[in-house]
Each structure stands twice: as structure tokens, then as C-alpha cells.
């Protein structure tokens, strides 16, 4: 993976403040509650339960971190990942998943093996642990 370009916001080590998170999960309850969890922790969060709509509204360089569910109808998380990367190669994207099968099968089929294990967050996850993991990802210089 390429190092992030200079002048990137992730160099900023101050936690959470004004960090922008995009959440895409086809379960409306999940995307909604995660948005609240992030807002409660001081992030600016945006959420979608429709991956197609999320892609349509996506603007490059608008988010510090993007969280994608893997098993979604119409467009799975890996396809969405590729599309988003086409629009914004510097976007920092990680996966949120509740199923080992979809995780491992898709990861293999789609040749995502080279992605770091740390970029996969297992659901369900407690609020504090989620915020801790997300902050750790935001503070990495490379991914």
C-alpha cells in the first residue's frame, strides 16, 4: 500500500475532534446506531443503509475513515471498496462484518488477502472498543 500523501489530515493526532466518518451498512438499525455512537464520541458521522446511494453521494477527500459492511444486497462491501478507491485512491477504508464466511470467502475471491487484518472489524463490537480501534486506524500514517 502506498503511504499517504503529505499534508494529509491523519497526521493530526488529536483524537476524534472533527474527524469525519462514513458508515455503510444495509441494516438500518446498525448504520443508525453506529452513527450515534460516533457522534457521541465527537466525530462527524454520516450513514447509509443503501450502498448504491452511498456511492452516488460520495465525494472524494470528504472522510477520514470509511466503514463498510461486507454482506449487502446489490453491492457487497468489496465491490463498493473498489468503486470508492476509484473515486478517491487515498480514502482510508475498513470493513465491519458479522460473518466469517462472507469475510473469508469474499476476501479470497476478491483478492483482498493483501489487506491488513486490522482493517477488518468484527460485529458485534462494544462502543468503547469500536472507538478505540477507529482512533488507532486514524493515527496510523500508512495503511
Amino acid at each position: 500500500m502506498k503511504p499517504r500523501k503529505t499534508g494529509d489530515k491523519s497526521k493530526n493526532k488529536s483524537k476524534s475532534k472533527n474527524k469525519r466518518i462514513l458508515i455503510v451498512d444495509d441494516e438500518p438499525d446498525v448504520s443508525l446506531v453506529l452513527k450515534k455512537v460516533f457522534e457521541n464520541a465527537g466525530f462527524a458521522a454520516e450513514s447509509y443503509d443503501d450502498p448504491i446511494l452511498a456511492l452516488k453521494n460520495f465525494r472524494a477527500a470528504s472522510y477520514d475513515l470509511i466503514l463498510l459492511d461486507i454482506k449487502m444486497p446489490e453491492m457487497d462491501g468489496f465491490s463498493l471498496y473498489k468503486q470508492l478507491k476509484n473515486l478517491d485512491n487515498d480514502a482510508k477504508i475498513c470493513f465491519l462484518t458479522a460473518s466469517e464466511m462472507y469475510f473469508s470467502r469474499l476476501r479470497k475471491d476478491e483478492d483482498f488477502c493483501k489487506l491488513d487484518e486490522g482493517l477488518f472489524i468484527r460485529k458485534p463490537i462494544g462502543n468503547e472498543e469500536l472507538i478505540r480501534k477507529v482512533n488507532a486506524l486514524l493515527n496510523e500514517d500508512t495503511y
Binding site: 446506531v33 453506529l34 455512537v37 457521541n40 458479522a98 464466511m101 460485529k123 463490537i125 462494544g126
Partner: peptide, 21 residues
Amino acid sequence: INVAAHELRTPIQPILSTVGL
């Protein structure tokens, strides 16, 4: 087992997060 695992875990997330909030 895989489908059931996904279906069992998914509703836990909103419960866990809401209670946490």
C-alpha cells in the same frame, strides 16, 4: 452455521450500542 452466525450477531450490534449510549 455461517448464515445463523451472521443473523445472530447482526441484531446484537444495535442492542449493545444503544445500551452503551
